[in-house]
Amino acid sequence: MVNKEIIDQDTYRKIKKMNREKLTKFILQYGDELLGEQSKTIDLPSLEMELSKIKGIGGKRLEEIMIVIEKFLDVE
């Protein structure tokens, strides 16, 4: 296992001095930043076009598949 430094020394010192409220805010902000770096997007129209090229998937079935995908991704 590689020992990767996640938090630098200065940040560690700041964390040690924080109260519960400040630490909670820091953790939430830090988590949001990490999620923002990792988020990927899906181009739904391109996905639909590629799925339509698959033999045996007609318009009606494609519509059903897209509804399921959009429900899974919480797209409205």
Rank of each mutant, 00 (worst) to 15 (best):
E70L: 14
F26L: 05
E48C: 04
S39P: 00
E21W: 03
E70D: 03
D32I: 14
K60F: 03
L35R: 14
L23V: 05
K53W: 06
G56W: 07
K14G: 00
E64N: 12
M1C: 03
K53G: 05
R61D: 05
L34A: 13
I54Y: 06
F26N: 02
Q9V: 11
L34S: 11
R61N: 09
K40D: 10
E64R: 13
S39H: 04
L44I: 14
G58E: 01
I65V: 09
D10P: 09
K40E: 12
E5R: 14
K22N: 05
D10K: 13
M1A: 12
R61E: 10
G56Q: 03
F72L: 06
L44Q: 06
L51Y: 08
K17R: 04
M18H: 06
N19M: 02
M49R: 13
L23H: 01
K25R: 06
K14L: 07
D43P: 01
F26G: 01
D10A: 11
E63G: 10
M66C: 03
I7L: 15
E21F: 07
R20H: 03
K22I: 08
K60H: 00
L51W: 08
T24F: 07
M18S: 05
V2P: 11
D8E: 08
L28K: 09
K17Y: 00
L47D: 03
E21L: 12
G56M: 07
V2L: 08
S39L: 10
M1F: 10
D43R: 06
M66Q: 04
M1Y: 07
I67H: 05
L44W: 12
K25F: 02
E70H: 00
L44R: 06
E63N: 12
I54Q: 04
E70W: 02
E21S: 08
L23R: 02
I15F: 03
K22E: 15
K60L: 10
E63A: 09
E64H: 03
G36R: 14
G36M: 11
L62P: 02
V75T: 02
I69Q: 00
